[in-house]
Amino acid sequence: MSCVAHNSASAAAVATENIYLPKLVVLDRVTDDIPEVRTFYWHFEDATEQAKFKHFRPGQFAQVSLFGIGEFPASLPPSPTEEETFFTIRQVGSCTAALHQLKPGEKFAVRGPYGNGFRMEDYYGKNLVFVAGGIGLIPLRSCIVYALKHRDKYQRIQIYYGSKTPRELMYLPNLREWQQSSGIECYLTVDRSADSWSGNVGVVGSLFKQPGVQVPVENTTAFVCGPPVMFRFVIKDLLAMGFREGDIVSTLERYMKCGVGKCGHCCIGVAYVCVDGPVFTYEQIKKLGEDI
């Protein structure tokens, strides 16, 4: 790290990389996930950019530009071990709507990857318990796929995932695959059932008490992502089971403008979520000193 001021005299070489400059990407195809949520597969126009970008870590994010509308942060749901790069985006406002309107072949722009991400090496030899609610599965998908690719590095892998209704279960093909895979225990639930649903009905936490379910607590890291209410209840359940606060990790969402620690928008307590996060342990989250 060099942060020496450049007086007119001591002008060292100017950094050539412009941290705010997004690079053009081409939209390849779009798939519908759940209502209002779509997955956008894309690649950088410039192959060297694509190669550079592919070194991202699970849990990192990128800044997505729709010129004339604005820029917004989006998690990277693919694992770096996968071929394609894509975003899964819920349409909520102007930027996300503009992305939803793009057709394959059209261009937008991306910069990143940013944030700390999950250091998957730190969890080698451990049990991994993923707990997600709704679109909280987006950032966790990357870790799950990564962990399964490096299956021998981890002990037990469990997924507890819940959505409001069966129609709102994300990444259905993946869920089916995970449910059938022998290396992973995947439990699903919905808040409200529909006729076609034969699985569990209830909040995510209700899965922990299902017969046959046993959550490993010792030597385990729990990954929790979902809406604030779900987050609070799941944390309570996990702590009651005996999880240490430092063994529960999550990603925080904050209003972001730059993604590189300069604009100040994502600052919470003593952390800049975009560079110090978005991944934090629950122990850290508690110490940030502001509402999450």
Binding site: M1, C3, V4, A5, H6, V14, A15, T16, E17, N18, I19, Y20, V260, G261, K262, V275
Partner: peptide, 16 residues
């Protein structure tokens, strides 16, 4: 200077 040129990312606009 410390803020815009320090840490992980340098701000090229500021620097110039």
């Amino acid at each position: 200077d410390r803020f815009y040129l320090g840490r992980d990312f340098r701000d090229l606009y500021y620097e110039k």
